[in-house]
């Protein structure tokens, strides 16, 4: 099912452009050119973010400090902490849970919920605000993190409802 979505979107856009007599090739190239600008602005932000996250995560402080919380499986603590910071590393943690405990275990299901219903707040924040040069982000970090927290709490409540 999800295999069909991307080709269908492309097909739909191209056909629509055809009907409206848009010079589709020229327009595509023109749009693709804009990516240069974005990527050059993006790289410094990305490097800075990855540098600090790498140091923080690899130091293992997260796993060592939060090993005392008991109402959720211990394996999920690093996932919860990493989820708003880095999408790839939280996905790596989830994969590890699938591998060791199985995708249908309590940790596996709860992990799927959390990964599926939240997004990488810090990444989106740096990316979106970095690309347009916003420096004063006001309350956006709190709003983003609270939205994440809600997703996690509702996920935990939900999993205990059906398990």
């Amino acid at each position: 099912m999800s295999n069909y979505i991307m080709p269908l979107i492309v097909l739909f856009v191209i056909i629509f452009g055809f009907i409206k007599k848009v010079p589709i090739y020229d327009t595509f190239v023109e749009g693709a050119k804009e990516s240069f600008d974005l990527v050059f602005k993006l790289f410094p932000c990305l490097l800075a973010m990855i540098l600090s996250i790498n140091i923080f995560v690899k130091s293992n402080i997260v796993t060592n400090l939060f090993s005392f919380v008991s109402f959720i499986p211990n394996e999920l603590i690093p996932l919860i902490i990493m989820r708003p910071i880095s999408g790839t590393s939280s996905l790596a943690i989830l994969t590890n849970i699938y591998q060791t405990l199985g995708p249908d275990s309590l940790a596996g299901i709860l992990g799927s919920y959390i990964q599926g219903s939240t997004d990488t707040t810090f990444y989106i924040l740096t990316l979106y605000f970095g690309s347009i040069g916003i420096k004063k982000i006001r309350y956006s970090l709190w709003a983003g993190l609270l939205a994440d927290l809600f997703s996690i709490i509702i996920s935990i409540l939900f999993v205990y409802l059906i398990f």
């Binding site: 599926g116 006001r138 956006s140």
Partner: peptide, 26 residues
């Protein structure tokens, strides 16, 4: 230009709470 507007932050919240229907990777 250096300060986030209300609409920007609302848009950010929409993105971070992850409006997903098909979590394809998972």
């Amino acid at each position: 230009k250096d300060t986030a507007t209300r609409s920007m932050i609302t848009f950010l919240v929409l993105n971070t709470s992850g409006v997903t229907i098909m979590p394809t990777t998972i």
